[in-house]
């Protein structure tokens, strides 16, 4: 049932956007409230994440009646937390602690690139999930996990099989690490959904960037949280990379496209020129890509 409500939500969103864009451009710029993006910066990962969680709960949490939250991290590679191929376990630790304390149940489904029994423990995320008794679901072996959905706004990707755990959940949180990516240039929130679908291989065959944007028009998280504590700027997504940067940031927004745009600026001065799927997201109006139309709260922790 949840799936239906999400689909309806997307449809309503699409209609709304259509109405807005058909109106005058000036009116649009004035009337649409700026998109909130929070950038937390500081040396201590746990403190960053605590501030981030405070902000989440001060801005509606996971929704009034949310009982279940599906959390999409990166845990796909057999790499250590320092190497920056997976979401940092310290951040996830705090997320789980605070989310569970607020009364929701969290699951962590992931379609790993390496075998789950290698990648999940190496990433440190299995241990963190175990600590909080959260189920880390290996989508590569779990049976009957995927359900086909339609992507109404999709240009190339019109259907995809999505992990049921996300469709069933009351709220979705997209929590990737920001890193270099050989095919996608960067992988942050939007591209992270490739770890939630069955047909990801075909995205490469059919036009990667369009598919990424298409799917993000359907899959919109309640919150997007970007781990930009340490980032690979080459040899991504797996690494190890000799070109690490250490922004020590966590970026938060309800709009994953905005979060991606802000995070991408850590890598490229003009993200839309560098990252194709962001430019497509702008053209398709999936989310905010214009810094000027964002309310960026920079918070030092």
């Amino acid at each position: 049932m949840q799936k239906l409500s999400r689909r309806n939500f997307v449809k309503v969103g699409a209609v709304g956007t259509a109405v807005l864009t058909s109106g005058s451009k000036a009116l649009f710029a004035e009337e649409k409230p700026k998109t909130d993006v929070w950038v937390f910066k500081g040396p201590d990962n746990r403190a960053l994440m605590e501030k981030c969680m405070e902000t989440i709960f001060a801005n509606g949490g996971f929704g009034a009646n949310a009982k279940t939250v599906a959390l999409k991290v990166n845990a796909g590679w057999e790499r250590t937390p320092e190497q920056g191929a997976n979401t940092h376990p310290e951040l996830v630790d705090v997320f789980l602690e605070k989310a569970i304390a607020s009364g929701v149940k969290v699951v962590m489904p992931e379609l790993p690139c390496k075998k789950a029994e290698l990648a999940f423990p190496a990433s440190g995320l299995q241990q963190v999930a175990d600590k909080h008794r959260v189920k880390m679901i290996d989508l590569s072996t779990a049976k009957n996990t995927f359900e086909e959905v339609e992507i109404p706004e999709g240009k190339t990707l019109k259907k995809e099989k999505v992990a049921r755990d996300f469709l069933k959940a009351d709220a979705i949180v997209n929590m990737p690490v920001a890193k270099h990516h050989s095919g996608g240039k960067l992988t942050i929130c939007m591209k992270n959904w490739m770890g939630a679908v069955e047909g990801r291989k075909m995205w490469h065959v059919n036009g990667l960037h369009q598919c990424i944007a298409d799917f993000s028009s359907f899959m919109k998280p309640t919150w997007a949280i970007v781990d930009a504590t340490r980032c690979m700027t080459s040899k991504g997504p797996q690494g190890p990379s000799e070109d690490m940067i250490y922004p020590q940031q966590v970026i938060l927004s309800k709009d994953q496209v905005a979060a991606d745009t802000v995070a991408a600026m850590l890598f490229h001065s003009d993200p839309l020129a560098a990252v194709n799927y962001l430019a497509i997201a702008r053209d398709m109006n999936i989310g905010e890509t214009d810094i000027k139309r964002m309310n960026i709260h920079r918070i030092t922790v």
């Binding site: 057999e78 690139c113 095919g183 490469h204 065959v205 990667l208």
Partner: peptide, 24 residues
């Protein structure tokens, strides 16, 4: 190859190479 012959953004091989042995 999707990249060489079909002009697609692919580089999945590079993604999956654990040794950085694929150059662009």
């Amino acid at each position: 190859c999707l990249a060489w012959a079909d002009n697609e953004y692919c580089m999945v091989c590079d993604e999956y190479c654990s040794y950085g042995a694929i150059e662009t």
